[in-house]
Every structure is written in C-alpha cells, then in structure tokens.
Design a protein around this nucleic acid. Sequence first.
DNA 1: TTGTTATGTATAAGAATCTTATGTATGTTT
DNA 2: AAACATACATAAGATTCTTATACATAACAA
Lengths: 111, 111
Amino acid sequence: MKNSQLYKGSLNTIIMKLLEENGKMYGYEITQKVKAITQGELNITEGALYPALHKLEAEGLLDVEIEKVDNRMRKYYKLTESGEKETMNRLSELEDFIRNMQSLVNPKLEF
Amino acid sequence: MKNSQLYKGSLNTIIMKLLEENGKMYGYEITQKVKAITQGELNITEGALYPALHKLEAEGLLDVEIEKVDNRMRKYYKLTESGEKETMNRLSELEDFIRNMQSLVNPKLEF
DNA sequence: TTGTTATGTATAAGAATCTTATGTATGTTT
DNA sequence: AAACATACATAAGATTCTTATACATAACAA
C-alpha cells in the first residue's frame, strides 16, 4: 500500500471486489488496476499483495490457475463459491465501516 | 475495536477528530462516545485505546491533564497545536481514503 | 552492449496496530 | 454478596503491512 495507515485491513476486500468484477485477474494486474482506479494514490506493494493472495487461496476463497503468456508466468485468481459469498459479507462490512467513519468525522450530517 | 479488520489504522484519526470536536476527553469517555455514535457497532477496546493515547502524547500531538472525579482518576486529553494541524492532515487523508474505497467498490459511480 | 524500466512472482525481517487476557481500584445496582 | 459500570494500564500474541531482496523475461535507451 501507500500513504496512511487507513488502508490497513482493506486489502482483502479490495482484491475480492476486483475479482468479483473482473472474473479472473493476476497479481500484477491487480496492482495496476488499483493504481489506475485511484489515479495513482494507492499503490499495492508486492510484499503485501502476494501473501494476501496466498492466504485467501489457503482459506478456500480463491482458486488459482497458472498460465504462461509471452514466456512469463501468470497466476490467475478467481473467487470460489464460498469466496463469492464472503465477498458479499466483506462489502457489506465495508459499507458499514464507511458509514460509521462518516458519522464520526461528520457528525452534523445524517446517515 | 470490533468486527472487521477495516478499522485497523483508523483509531488515531477517530481519537483526534473527537478531541478536535469536544475540546478535551478522557479515555473511557472516548469509548462510550464512539459506541454511541456508531450505535454500538464500533467498540474500542482498552488494549487498543490506551497505548494509542500514550503514543499520541509521546508524539506531542496530545496534552494530558489528570483530574479526580468522584474519587476516580481521569486523564483528560486535548490536542496540542501540532496535534490540531496533524488532525487536519489525517482528516484529509481519511477523505481521500473513503473516496478511493468508494471508487474501487462502486466503479459505476463518479466521484 | 549495457543499464534501466516494465512485467511477473516470491519471501524474509521487522514495524505497526490490534485482540485477548489480566490486573488494579472505586462506585452502583441487584 | 455478586455483578456491573467506571477508569486506567500492560503484556503476549496475532495480523497486516513496509522494506528489502531475489529470480526471471522483455523492451527500450544510452
């Protein structure tokens, strides 16, 4: 990641949401996609990404499929069935989190 | 904290924002305030709160003032000058963070 | 051709933040 | 008398991340 500590804990949710949207993606592709979407503000480091992917796979939330493209290895990840269900939960948690943070920071508004 | 990992990294920002708003607060009061604002969804644990307060104080962002109320000790914290400046930075980072997360999770909408 | 950048994955050491458990102490309610 | 609320504190361990390093291929620039 980059910058503030705020992103701590959100990497798994980001990965799963992107996979839900794009079907299958490989690690490097995820870093580039995130960088593009956030206009360069969020840079996922390999040291954070790969262990996270391996853990999600070990938990049965992701399936992996190795391909060779241009003589370079790619490991494509996609959500398992249980991964899709868990993605729904995580997104719901993220909505609650954002709502709560806005309530704390912006107490004048109603949410 | 409670629940999802998402809150990891946001505790300092929460503390500083509450202090900015309320002038001075003591630890237990902060936990109760957060619980009330989030309608019970976010429970800050003492094991997270007190070390965080001590660290912010050590960094010169908070000042402490001890009072005895009803024969019980209270440590009131308030922002220092540099703490107020830093609070502005953290709130700005939080806004960026929320905006980026919404872009990632809700790519259909414009932000 | 040699160095740098981009693509692509991986791990290990250490930092930072948190959970869980425990400890101390007083006041209030059951 | 026991449980709960108020009030602070720390220590052990878990989790997540940063930083650094490693390997490998391809493209591009000096």
